[in-house]
């Protein structure tokens, strides 16, 4: 299926008659990107599945108010990121775990996940990523796996490009160090 431009999706969404069609075009274009973005943050497939649906429900409710001063793509990522962070915060409260322990909790989830088909090195990489602080981890994922530009990540997270560069640099050094030392 040919993917349509964001402008066309927004134009169709603004018309009552073509709103559902526009939303389906948007889902078709972005659902997998959003899924993987969330999956890398919360690790568990079932949690991701819930969050993908919640994200797109929010998109449906708020797309009419979307202003084109940011890209649709980064706007969707921002909603998905916020939903994921909110979910993790709730999980911390529910399981009474500290910020530092979130990574180890997620590492356990990764270890017990039946939906992981990477090799030993890839598992090691994921475990190394999970040692990063939450926001640094999200930045790393968006830069490393999604090849997003710093200004796009800046739009998603509301953080300056300079701060993002610094954060990503620290994350890379830490992961490299873990990978080399454990080999």
């Amino acid at each position: 299926m040919k993917q349509v431009e964001d402008a066309e999706i927004l134009q169709k969404f603004s018309v009552e008659k073509t709103r559902n069609e526009a939303f389906n075009l948007l889902l078709n274009k972005y659902q997998q990107k959003i899924y993987w973005h969330i999956r890398r943050i919360v690790i568990d497939h079932d949690d991701t599945d819930d969050l993908v649906q919640e994200t797109f429900v929010k998109v449906w409710k708020n797309l009419a108010n979307f202003r084109s001063d940011s890209q649709l793509y980064t706007w969707l990522y921002r909603i998905a990121t916020n939903e994921s962070i909110t979910f993790l915060n709730k999980k911390k409260l529910k399981n009474n775990i500290s910020l530092d322990d979130v990574g180890s909790e997620l590492a356990e989830t990764l270890a017990s996940s039946s939906y992981f088909d990477g090799d030993k090195i890839q598992r090691k990489l994921q475990e190394a990523i999970l040692t990063l602080p939450e926001k640094q981890r999200i930045i790393f994922n968006m830069k490393y796996f999604d090849d997003m530009k710093y200004d796009e990540i800046s739009e998603v997270l509301g953080t300056s490009v300079g701060a993002l560069k610094a954060s990503f640099h620290i994350a890379v050094k830490k992961i490299e160090s873990i990978l080399i030392n454990q080999d």
């Binding site: 889902l27 659902q31 994921q126």
Partner: peptide, 29 residues
Amino acid sequence: EASHLASLSRSTPYSVPDYYFDDLQARIN
């Protein structure tokens, strides 16, 4: 600076259940 990391495959090693994305759109709707 991180040559070892740069040499790794950048594909996400996670998987999804079979045919998961086939009906994801319908479930979101």
